[in-house]
Design a protein around this nucleic acid. Structure first.
Lengths: 134, 134, 134, 134
DNA sequence: TTTT
DNA sequence: TTTT
């Protein structure tokens, strides 16, 4: 079975870095991927694709990726589901990336963020260790 | 911008063929793509990825693809959203395929379905012409 | 059967535009794709991958792509062979692209080349109509 | 930079397993990937793409892959060159696979080969440690 | 909820 | 024969 996606687009925001209860780093960001054609109906012209990155690559992404940056991603499509607070099953589709390429230099010479895990905002984390890809 | 996915998996059901109000054929099926590893936590070991096919390829798929058949798909990830009956925005992620490979012969020598558009089941169609990929 | 490649790299030179005897446009360029890691042995750190583009896309590439430009390519690997002047069979591997993305703006505001087919340099053309992808 | 290929095809022969002087396993096989269309000019209708696999995956491939088996491969295109015995530079293009999927069961219930490294045939090995992908 |  |  094969499940491989390659995306090139721009981050809609800075990546969000979290840690699972057992301390595994996970970063999340959304890639805006412009479509090649212009819709005749004035509809949207980009797809906004959620990307998830684990472990060391998560920390590298959180440190170096920024909103608007042109970025390449390789990974696999994952569909997970959870019960929302009204007891309804909600499906979430994400690309679990095992490879991230920074395609654009650091134009403004920004510093790496070096996000501190202990500054975690305390919100519930959607990712449990059960989701670890390997 | 690049948005390319390659999947190999098995159909969970026969494809569903519909027609937009303006008569464009669109087929929908779900690919079960087994993950390479076995989850230690007894979690699910496949991803179920919705695939959409347009126009002539839709009719070919409806005619020749069957539940369980090993199938290769190439396409792009699309995220569309609609308002559900409770006024909430729901996001749907699908792979819009422009290439489908039948990787398994027709073992039981089944006949093509040749689904008749006029046998459409009358249920509301999720796809409007605005979604046409080109 | 599936044969799909996705490349992002930089052109080593401007594309070369030719025409087959029957007048079909074909462009050729090489993508330098940097490898992610640095070789410990001082070996080369990029792959130089020949890309071939046909028909209208060939003319667009010849008009807008330039040496050094960051470019995304989707296509399939093709292996063709010919007999060289010493009667030996030589194998050539190329990516036949059906999709090319210009990932970098036109920084120096260059004009399109608008290469004239009749300025063809007269050298023998490697591509015959038999190679047309569809 | 991105360099990603996905192939599904059939092995033209059993894989060949070798070891570098320092003992790293490397397997080589060729995938025949049928083209989707039939050439009008009676030309060949498949591409024969050389695949290289390193380390543990090489041994798994040598043990379980066989001639004719439908196989999925993910990897990157690599172009290496060497000087032939006439002092001419020869270019070799291969897909370096980091992921191999056996898409077809073991129909004849064959035993794994379990090739013994010490049965190596003694021929010169084309791969040096310098080529190791990581 | 979205990027250049 | 190679790109930033």
């Amino acid at each position: 079975m094969i499940n491989r996606s390659v995306l090139v687009g721009r981050l809609t925001k800075d990546p969000e870095l979290k840690y699972t209860p057992s301390g595994v780093a996970v970063a999340q960001f959304t890639l805006a991927v412009d479509r090649p054609y212009t819709s005749q109906s004035g509809e949207r012209e980009a797809d906004f694709i959620p990307v998830v990155v684990w472990r060391q690559l998560a920390e590298t992404c959180a440190n170096y990726l920024r909103k608007g940056r042109l970025t390449g991603v390789e990974g696999r499509i994952q569909v997970r589901s959870y019960e929302n607070n009204e007891g309804k099953r909600v499906y979430v589709t994400e690309v679990i990336a095992d490879n991230v390429r920074f395609l654009e230099g650091n134009r403004n010479n920004e510093q790496p963020k070096n996000q501190d895990p202990f500054q975690d905002d305390g919100k519930p984390i959607d990712y449990s260790d059960a989701n670890l890809p390997f």
